[in-house]
Design a protein around this nucleic acid. Structure first.
Lengths: 147, 147
DNA sequence: CTTGAAACTTCGGGCAC
DNA sequence: GTGCCCGAAGTTTCAAG
C-alpha cells in the first residue's frame, strides 16, 4: 500500500471534514471528481479509511467523567482480559503497556456512580490482581486524528 | 440543551456513518428530510456535533508506535505545560489526573527515533520534573465514539 | 413542532479523449 | 488521468397541518 502526495491531501481534508463530496474535494485540490472518487474508494478498500464519524462533545451528552485505570493481571490472561474490557461500552481505550502495570484503560461515565460500578465490576474479573483508578481532572486534548 | 430520543437516534447513526444524507437518515428513521436536517443543524449549532471526520488506520499511515507518558511537574505550571503538549502534532491525548503523576500523555510516532526525540524534548521543558514513558505493546481498543 | 411536494442544486458514473 | 453530460439523489423553500 503506497500513498502518494495526493492521497495524503485527500486524507487530510477528510479528517477535517468527512462530509466533503468528491466534487468539492476535486475543486479544492485541483483534481477531477473521478480521480478523487477512485482514490477514496481505493483508500476505503485498503482500509486506510476505516469509516466516517461525527465528532461529538461527550460532556454535552452527559459523559462528564473520564477515568484512567491501571490494571495488573495474571500475565497469561492479559489478552483475554483486554478483549473483555474492549467490549464494554464506556471503555474508549485499552492499551497493553510496558512498565509496572500491564494494561491501561480509558473510560467515560455519566456519573461517579457509574464509574464506581465499573471499577467494582472489573475488580471482580478473574485473574485481575489489582487496579488503580485515576480520575481525569481536566482533558487538555483528546484528538486521535493525525495529520 | 435537551436531546430527545430522535436526536439521539440521529447522533448514533452519524457516529456510525457521518456521510449519511439527511434524506437517507429520514428514510431510515421514519422522519422527514427537513426534520432531520433542522435537528442536525441544531446539534451543530449547539456544538454537540463538533465536526465530521474520517477514521484512519494510523498504522497503515506509518504511525506504528504508540506511547503513554506520565509527567510530574511543578504544580503551578501544570496547565501551561499541558497547553504546550497539546499543541504537538504527535500528541493525541493530554489528561490531568489524580494520583502520583500529574499528567498523562498519549502520543503516536512513526519510529522509535521520533519517540526518543519527543521524550528528550519534553524532558527539557521547564518545570517538568520527571517523565515515565510506557510503550504500547498492543492496542486492544481505541474508539472514542460513545453511544 | 412537524410534513410533503415543488424548485433548485449538486452528486457520482459513463463515455470519449 | 481529465472534461462533459445525464439521470439520480441531494438540499432548500414554502404553504399548511
Amino acid at each position: 500500500m503506497n500513498l502518494d502526495k495526493n492521497d495524503e491531501r485527500i486524507l487530510k481534508n477528510l479528517l477535517v471534514d468527512a462530509r466533503l463530496s468528491a466534487r468539492q474535494l476535486g475543486l479544492k485540490l485541483g483534481m477531477s471528481t473521478v480521480t478523487i472518487l477512485s482514490r477514496i474508494k481505493k483508500l476505503e478498500k485498503e482500509k486506510v479509511i476505516k469509516g466516517y464519524t461525527a465528532l461529538i462533545d461527550h460532556e454535552k451528552l452527559g459523559y462528564t467523567l473520564t477515568a484512567i485505570i491501571e490494571i495488573i493481571a495474571k500475565k497469561d490472561k492479559i489478552i483475554d482480559i483486554e478483549t473483555e474490557l474492549a467490549k464494554i461500552e464506556n471503555v474508549c481505550g485499552v492499551y497493553d503497556i510496558t512498565g509496572n502495570t500491564d494494561t491501561l484503560v480509558i473510560a467515560k461515565f455519566k456519573s461517579r456512580n457509574e464509574l464506581s460500578e465499573f471499577v467494582k465490576g472489573i475488580a471482580s474479573i478473574q485473574n485481575i490482581e489489582n487496579t488503580i483508578t485515576h480520575v481525569v481532572l481536566n482533558t487538555a486534548k483528546e484528538d486521535f486524528r493525525l495529520a
